[in-house]
Design a protein around this nucleic acid. Structure first.
Length: 185
DNA sequence: ACATTGATCGCT
DNA sequence: GCGATCAATGTC
């Protein structure tokens, strides 16, 4: 059942985050719950460059929370924002990661929304217990989809990082042009 | 204070 | 309807 999805290797994620972020568009995120895969196509990502990037959690230092970001590429970094919402990232190594912000539904329960990082995590049933999980195997993994042509990728500033000074304006948000599933703001 | 969201208020 | 405002709530 989950076999028809071909996992991306850990190696796939081993690139600079600003390169991986657009490269992930079009690929799939698969979450297996009770043997049933929930699947979405990645349509929106953001790159967080590492300790030098003031919007990146790793710039605040290496803590228990951010430790996994300093580990090997291809693992998940899941965190809790505002005490309520989980956000899912793909670690690229050296304290950097790519935030997954929106999915186009492929195989999901009806009525769940996947636009926005909090809704995405909720729809897939991802919480802190999945932080540090290798995204090459169930129950949470990236799978091969159809890459999005560069001409169909739109770039803009990251959402919700106004506090990060000059970094707030850096064009590190990537999303599929004309996708109805991209988060609004 | 915070890489968010959903509800509500107060207008047009 | 729509934009501004606000509360919820765990970790740092």
């Amino acid at each position: 059942m989950t076999r028809r999805f071909v996992p991306l290797s850990l190696r796939f994620s081993r690139r600079r985050p600003e390169v991986l972020a657009p490269a992930l568009l079009g690929h799939l995120l698969v979450r297996v719950v009770d043997g049933v895969p929930r699947v979405g196509r990645i349509v929106e990502t953001e790159a967080y460059l590492g300790p030098q990037d003031l919007a990146c959690h790793s710039s605040k230092g290496r803590t228990a929370r951010t430790e996994v970001m300093f580990g090997p590429a291809g693992y998940s970094y899941v965190f809790l924002v505002y005490g309520l919402h989980h956000c899912v990232n793909v670690v690229t190594g050296k304290g950097a990661a790519v935030l997954l912000r929106a999915l186009e539904p492929v195989a999901l329960p009806a009525d769940v929304r996947t636009d926005g990082p909090g809704r995405l995590a909720k729809a897939l049933g991802v919480d802190l217990s999945l932080s540090g999980h290798p995204l090459s195997e169930p129950p949470l993994f990236l799978a091969r989809g159809r890459a999005v042509a560069r001409s169909n990728v739109q770039v803009g500033p990251r959402v919700g990082v106004d506090y990060a000074g000059a970094w707030a304006k850096a064009p590190l948000r990537f999303f599929v042009k004309d996708s109805a599933w991209v988060s609004a703001r």
